[in-house]
Design a protein around this nucleic acid. Structure first.
Lengths: 333, 333
DNA sequence: CTGAAAGCGCTAACAC
DNA sequence: GTGTTAGCGCTTTCAG
């Protein structure tokens, strides 16, 4: 900048003003001259200096439990792309589904000077000491938006209507004559898992089917957990259908069944959650609940940017409706 | 820092020295006192100030073509996790497989002050004006390591031995009696695609099978491109086996076959590339070429950090051997 | 062993 | 319309 000023024979102020388009004061001729020289010298502002001076970094933190899960991968892609067009960079952290990592990432990122954080929380965070978590989330020095979770805390979030999603899935199976419907749910404390389970319960009750806890299985949203659950699910011959809280756990069940030569697609109707791309290449394409990750990503990013730019604490709750995607894994029993 | 200095009745210098463990000079008692107070005040250095002063940011850029592709997702996870343990943050950009995006990201990230960049290049970059690309990559102001690509430029990279991988795949099929082996390759200019094709050619020649260009199909590594290619591949009834340059394109073929009720798993032997997790849940688990993404990620990250920390330009080429994972999609014809 | 002070590159309040 | 200058929070040189 100094060089530009010297070259253009103006002050640093003028250069700064012009290059930031706050050129209300500078004369047109100088303006043009400064811009020309800046371009010619291929000037790039030093972002550390800008940050130090303005106390903003134009970086946002994004924390996800597992980037390898296609559902999260989609979210990450939408968010980074969106933020990029708005002039923000994305610092990505994979928390490996661990609260400990989330916590240290949160602190680390704040001191890295991010302007705000987008948090897709782990399951674990909800099993922790909740007053500590509240403190962590509410007293964060920077704006925060939660994705794919809800909370009663004074924190913004955008989430899917999980109750509704699970209701649609369960009802679909009942409509096809199923009554012994297994449900693969997530961890006890994970709020979305609770909601999905609630949807399952609701629909059973509405259809006067008594809830049987032997049909409820508990995983952690990973393919491995589905794989682990598979033998128990498949040895219960009463079960005619499965609703899974996500596609991945169902994939795990399918993997186990394949390995043990069980014709699972012939035996069971199945509905997943997330509409991952791989649902379409299975032996029988999977019916699933689709969630509009793009909307989630842009809604959350926009909200965060608004908080950052207006410097206001906004507590807003956004809930997105899921959609039932009918393919071929459900049929009359 | 000022507060700590005041509280401890020492100078700013002392505080800085102690907190950075350059405490060769400060007395033990003061040292302890300063650390105590810093912890008590929950002191976090302002990273913008550190950056400005030291001219480093402890941030690294990571550019990938498509985070949604499980192969890249795995790389991203390994890299972010590894860099995190070394005290570096990761600025992630999804280039959407476009050279234009890569180029602007590269410039944008540099001016964001990253200390170095890890680039998993798009296919497109190799179809561009190559003198421009050379200029872009070689004259980058910061250390650069390429992943999943090779180059004759003075640029470091970590890549798989693609020739060997494709050779293993093709030979495996020949060993099982196949001779009309289709090959799904990537774009013309993408170096890895070229290498894989070369491996295919090599093995045909070695086995005295004449290369038939009608058996070579060209995709872009996306599931969609496989889907597009499927009708042409499947209508050629001579073909008894497929080698695909990645799993995803094969998934696309499988998807199309499913939709058109073609029993592809009965008709064709198939081998993919990448060993994505979903290869195991298909109707017939897929034989594939596994690439050690973790090694690639850590090798590349370590190399980059070395360049950053020693401030030396290192041009090192690392090549990793792939492994053939035998599952059930290959059988005697 | 310790501290004062210059400086990193930029912004913005202030004075002209 | 224009320029001077005081910071932003930290590191590091230099003088004691």
């Amino acid at each position: 900048m100094k060089d530009i000023a010297k070259e253009a024979k103006v002050s640093l102020t003028a250069v700064s003003l012009v290059l930031n388009d706050k050129d209300t004061r500078v004369s047109e001729s100088k303006k043009a001259e400064i811009k020309r020289i800046a371009k010619q010298m291929n000037y790039r502002p030093n972002s550390a200096a800008v940050s130090l001076s303005k106390n903003v970094s134009y970086n946002v933190a994004l924390i996800v439990p597992d980037i390898t899960n296609p559902f999260f991968a989609r979210i990450v892609r939408e968010i980074t792309t969106f933020l990029n067009t708005k002039g923000y960079g994305t610092l990505l952290v994979d928390s490996d589904n661990s609260y400990k990592n989330e916590k240290s990432a949160l602190q680390n990122l704040i001191s890295r000077g991010v302007d705000g954080v987008l948090l897709v929380p782990s399951n674990e965070i909800f099993s922790e000491n909740q007053t500590e978590v509240t403190k962590l989330l509410q007293n964060l020095a920077k704006p925060l938006v939660l994705l794919n979770a809800y909370t009663t805390r004074k924190v913004s979030y955008v989430n899917f209507d999980n109750v509704k999603g699970a209701e649609m899935a369960t009802q679909e199976l009942i409509n096809y004559g199923h009554r012994q419907i297994a449900f693969i749910r997530g961890e006890n404390n994970f709020v979305n898992a609770l909601e999905r389970y609630e949807g399952y319960e609701n629909v059973l009750k509405k259809n006067q089917i008594t809830l049987n806890q032997n049909l409820v299985f508990r995983g952690d949203y990973s393919m491995e957990s589905g794989y682990r659950l598979a033998p128990d699910i498949l040895k219960n011959r009463q079960i005619t259908a499965i609703v899974s809280s996500n596609d991945l756990m169902l994939f795990g069940v399918i993997k186990w069944a394949k390995e043990h030569q069980i014709p699972i697609f012939k035996r069971l109707s199945m509905i997943g959650f997330d509409n991952t791309p791989y649902t379409e290449i299975l032996e029988v394409p999977l019916t699933t609940i689709d969630q509009d990750t793009e909307k989630m990503a842009t809604d959350a990013s926009e909200l965060l940017l608004k908080m950052i730019q207006t410097k206001q604490k906004i507590v807003k709750k956004i809930i997105i409706d899921p959609i039932l995607i009918r393919r071929q894994s459900v049929w009359k029993r």
